[in-house]
Design a binder for these strands. Structure first.
Lengths: 99, 99
DNA sequence: TTGACAGGCAAGTCGATGCTTGCCTATTGT
DNA sequence: ACAATAGGCAAGCATCGACTTGCCTGTCAA
């Protein structure tokens, strides 16, 4: 996958509110499973999605390089990687509209 | 418009490659008109869109607070405002996946 | 071994979104 | 005044994206 597409994936990944909520949860605690993240979305964010929907979101986050997943036995643990986000801040240097 | 929705608009605005290219152009030079931006997209980014399409993108960027527009006579000048982007970097503090 | 649990795959639905087309308004210069 | 220029509005289309439903695979414990 070309770099350009990978970068585009980061922005698309952040475009969805549910995925941003997932990143919020993963920043609070690493190594969470799909079921853990499902229940946390429901409890703390009032997002009642099916397990598959959350799984698809995690796939997108993983493709964008924002989440790493590791399977251990029956469980799959998800961890956030915030490094790709630095590119966003650096792309458009600070420039204020007025003054 | 609630703050939450405004923040969501920032991410949605960045999700489109054409809009990111527009921000790239505006970071290089402020106070550009719709026609200027159209030709620059075509020349430098190989994006041949109609004037209306670019105008719609600028509307979205403006709604997200990333672009300010000022009408002077026959022309409308567009200026980038990078301040909303700071929120993105601050939302998910640095946390590396390994080590 | 077998049932329960964690997760994966794939198709289908439906609303959101990017873009075009056609026409209209406003400002400027001759 | 009127033609040319810069921009705006709105409807229509076609693709994309989020979500669900139904079923399958793999792992662990009793």
């Amino acid at each position: 996958m070309p770099i350009v597409d990978a970068v585009a994936d980061i922005y698309k990944a952040l475009a969805d509110g549910t995925r941003r909520a997932l990143l919020d949860e993963l920043v609070e605690r690493d190594e969470q499973t799909l079921f853990e993240l499902c229940s946390r979305l429901a409890l703390k964010h009032d997002l009642t999605l099916t397990r598959q929907a959350v799984s698809q979101h995690l796939d997108i986050l993983e493709a964008a390089g924002l989440v790493e997943a590791e399977r251990r036995g029956r469980y799959k643990f998800h961890t956030i990687d915030t490094r790709p986000l630095a590119e966003i801040a650096e792309r458009w240097p600070t420039r204020k509209a007025d003054a």
